[in-house]
Design a protein around this nucleic acid. Structure first.
Length: 648
DNA sequence: GTTAGGG
DNA sequence: CCCTAAC
């Protein structure tokens, strides 16, 4: 069950609420004409064996909350600097950006107590970490008051924003559920979703480091989440860098590949409903790409976060705070009101429905299905980490929000809510949201976004009851899982899952240690529309493994093995010796890793990226490499000299 | 099935 | 990590 706590956080259902703010979704009588998204108060608390992570999101509907970041910044005594940027971002309707700025600029200050590992790379994480740090810090944010001051500065230093903002602000407006955006100035829209919380893998951030390279990503991402959970920090990243829809560079590769030449970036476009801005990510430099890819995916959340003006972050108990307040608290909003309207100014025009508003309350999301296999002897802490990593892995490919109406997935992003029937009385209760893995194949260009035939009815979705029911349950299913892996806390997943929503399930541990396996779901409807040949291509793509950085521990093991066995023609032995239980590490992987290690060891530390490998290890790499290279050379010489003699 | 290297 | 040629 513990494991599920983490998952549960992510998991969830959507509650559609009309009219009044009553929690009950059944209240149909409410005025449907005026629908708004209720604010969610979500408090999640994840405790790790290592330390307590707290992600609390209280969206009380107070617009003021949006300034959380700013406040945070100001707290750091960098009001001028940070707030400016923040405001600027705000001006762009890009709170996320603001958060980003704050993160990069002020992270260290804010989190003075935190470990700041390194430059920009870790800043975000650090920032998030700070947020987590504690109630004490967070409480400070409670008093929001910098809006006015900061506003002045909004236009002051646009360039700063640019610096931080690699992506496009336009991205913000991408494919979110229109619903969320249907807010008018007066309407308080905040779909504070518990979703953010879960991602927080901070638990491991310190200690887990050796465990898995992924942690790095996870943490940073998580932190984002956290921060977002706390308020906006997370959001930041998202906007900061337009979310690459597709997984790794694979996407790039795919697009470039012969098979896909015909279907360029439109691919992305498909995934993201509206704006073409999404395609940008493809052009991002690879290095940055990984850094942000995960966080970026959380598009939906971030947007919501923007509107989910997190209120005070105090240490609460409940994992999910059901509290929802629809309307902003007037008291707090006094100040915020102005900024708020400004904040949303640009949005209304394009997104708000003409007549009525849809009022939604998203209590939680369904999350992709996970299978976890772990030894009974494993510790709870390990279980938690495992789950965390599993979640991270799944999310690694990015997330999309799926909208389900009466159990049917709505694919046409261009339809209005009205057209879809979401606003109608009888539909509100049937509306569901899901988090879906955002895989590259999910929406190849050849699948028109708008094509009606894609609006499938007979989807895997059926497996997943309309949001409300799925919510927080992690079901324990004992089903033999074909693709298993070893290596305790490392995640084994070789495929991004297909874009269908899934429920959570856990597989009872067997005797050996196993890892998580995101079980991909077939995108039936999509496949049905795809030409046969393309279909096969796609399936190939699906097999692509996710990138999983080597942890220091793994590097250590690799180095040790190579020192003993050597490199030449012994990768299989190395594998068996040091990574026999890590199924996801093939000898080819090890070989490749060694290759990169050697390269890394030769370049200057400044040029290195990713999780830093201790210099000591790098030294050993060079030494071992030199030694074995020499041995190999000698060997070759011998062989070249021997044959003649034999012939003679 | 492995290894070695380029991508 | 992927892909492939070459064992």
């Amino acid at each position: 069950m513990c494991a599920f706590d983490l998952l549960a956080i992510v998991a969830g259902n959507l509650l559609l609420e009309k009219g009044n703010n009553t929690p009950s979704s059944s209240d149909i009588s409410a005025d449907k004409d005026h629908c708004k998204v209720a604010n969610n108060a979500v408090k999640n608390e994840c405790q790790n064996d290592e330390k307590n992570m707290k992600v609390e999101v209280h969206d009380q509907g107070s617009i003021t909350r949006s300034f959380f970041v700013s406040e945070l910044v100001s707290q750091g005594n960098e009001q001028n600097h940070c707030s400016k940027e923040y405001l600027y971002a705000e001006n762009d309707l890009n709170l996320g950006l603001a958060a980003t700025v704050a993160t990069s600029e002020c992270a260290e200050r804010i989190g003075s107590g935190m470990m700041v590992n390194s430059k920009s790379q870790n800043e975000i994480r650090t920032f998030a970490g700070n947020l987590d740090v504690g109630p004490s810090l967070l409480r400070e944010f409670d008093n929001c008051k910098l809006e006015r001051e900061t506003k002045k500065l909004i236009k002051d230093e646009p360039h700063k924003c640019g610096k931080v903002q690699n992506g496009t602000v336009a991205n913000m407006c991408s494919f979110e559920d229109p619903v969320v955006w249907d807010e008018k100035p007066h309407t308080l829209v905040s779909s504070g979703s518990s979703t953010k919380v879960p991602l927080r893998g901070n638990n491991n951030s310190h200690s887990s480091y050796p465990t898995n390279g992924d942690n790095v990503n996870v943490n940073s991402r998580d932190d984002d989440e956290n921060s977002s959970g706390c308020t906006h920090p997370s959001t930041t990243k998202k906007f900061f860098r337009p979310a690459p829809r597709i997984g790794d560079r694979r996407i790039r590769k795919i697009l470039a590949s012969k098979y896909w030449k015909g279907a360029p970036r439109s691919n992305d476009a498909t995934l993201s409903n509206t704006d073409g801005a999404d395609s940008k990510p493809l052009y991002h430099k690879r290095k940055n790409y990984y850094k942000y890819q995960r966080s970026e995916r959380l598009y939906p959340f971030k947007k919501r976060k923007h509107f989910a003006y997190g209120s005070q972050l105090d240490s609460g108990e409940g994992m999910s705070n059901e509290f929802v307040s629809d309307s902003p608290k007037k008291g707090n909003d006094e100040d915020a009101a102005g900024s708020c309207s400004k904040l949303h100014a640009g949005q209304h025009n394009s997104f708000r429905p003409r007549h009525s508003h849809v009022k939604l309350r998203i209590k939680s999301f369904k999350v992709p299905e996970l299978f976890i296999e772990i030894p009974e002897s494993a510790t709870v802490g390990l279980l938690k980490r495992t789950v965390m990593e599993a979640v991270t892995t799944i999310l690694g490919g990015g997330l999309r929000v799926g909208v389900l109406l009466q159990g049917k997935k709505i694919r046409d992003d261009h339809k209005t809510l009205q057209q879809t029937g979401i606003c109608h009385n009888n539909q509100l209760d049937a509306l569901g949201f899901s988090l879906e893995p955002n895989s590259s194949r999910a929406a190849p260009s050849f699948c028109p976004v708008d094509s009606p035939f894609l609006i499938d009815t007979a989807q895997p979705v059926s497996r997943y009851p309309p949001a409300p029911s799925v919510a927080h349950h992690a079901t324990c299913a004992a089903s033999p899982e074909p693709h298993q892996t070893n290596l305790g806390n490392l995640i084994e997943s070789d495929h991004d899952s297909a874009p269908s929503p899934t429920a959570m399930s856990i597989e009872k541990g067997t005797t050996d240690s196993k890892a998580l396996v995101p079980v991909p779901e077939m995108n039936i409807e999509a496949l049905a529309v795809v030409p046969a040949d393309l279909k096969s291509k796609r399936s190939e793509i699906v097999q692509r493994r996710i990138r999983r950085p080597f942890s220091v521990a793994e590097v250590e093991a690799l180095v040790q093995a190579v020192e003993k066995l050597g490199t030449g023609s012994r990768w299989r032995d190395v594998k068996l010796r040091a990574f026999d239980n890590a199924k996801h590490r093939t000898y080819v992987d090890l070989k490749d890793k060694w290759k990169t290690l050697v390269h890394t060891a030769r370049i200057s530390p400044q040029q290195r990226r990713g999780e830093p490998v201790p210099q000591e290890l790098l030294d050993r790499v060079l030494t071992a490499h030199a030694y074995w290279s020499h041995q190999q050379a000698k060997q070759h010489i011998k062989q070249q000299q021997q044959p003649p003699s034999l012939e003679l």
